[in-house]
Simulated scan of single mutants.
Amino acid sequence: MNDVEGHVLHGLLEEASGDIVIRLDRHGFMIHASANIAELGLDLSCALLLPHITDLAERDHAGFLGEHVSAVLAGRTQIGWIEFPVVACAERDTCREAQCQRWYALSLRPMCDTNGTPDGALCLMRSVQRLRSLEGELHSRAVTDPLTGLANRQAFCASLRRHLARGGGQMVAVFAVDSMRALLLRYGQRTADEVLWGFAKFLETMTQSLTAPGHELAQLDGERFAVLLPEMTARCAREWAEDVLTTFAGLAAPTSAKAPQLTASAGLARVECTVDWTLREAELGLVLARAGGGRQVATAGHRRAA
Rank of each mutant, 00 (worst) to 15 (best):
D193F: 03
P110M: 00
R109K: 08
H163P: 04
R153M: 05
L160Y: 06
G149E: 06
C112L: 11
P118M: 07
R141G: 12
M111K: 00
L184W: 08
T117P: 01
A155M: 01
Q189S: 13
A158Q: 12
S179T: 07
R186E: 14
P118T: 13
R190V: 15
Q129R: 06
S107T: 10
L185Y: 09
A151I: 02
G116V: 10
D113V: 08
F175R: 00
T117H: 12
R132Y: 10
F175Y: 14
T117N: 12
V128P: 08
G120V: 01
R166Y: 03
G116K: 08
R162D: 09
G136W: 11
S179R: 13
Q154K: 05
M125D: 04
A182P: 03
R161K: 12
A165K: 01
T191G: 09
S140M: 13
V195Q: 09
Y187S: 09
D145T: 01
T148H: 00
S107M: 10
T144E: 08
E135H: 13
H139R: 14
L131S: 15
G169W: 08
S127A: 13
S107E: 09
D178K: 02
Y187F: 15
W197H: 12
G188N: 07
G188P: 00
D113M: 06
M111A: 13
D193E: 14
Y187V: 00
A155Q: 08
N152D: 12
L160P: 03
L164F: 08
D113F: 00
L164R: 05
F156N: 08
A192C: 13
E135C: 11
L184E: 11
S140D: 15
S140K: 15
A182F: 07
Q189P: 05
G120Q: 04
V195L: 11
G169A: 09
E137F: 13
A173H: 00
A155L: 03
P118V: 10
G169E: 09
L150K: 01
Y187I: 00
Q129G: 04
L138R: 12
D119R: 12
L147K: 00
R166N: 11
R141F: 12
S140L: 14
W197R: 03
D178P: 00
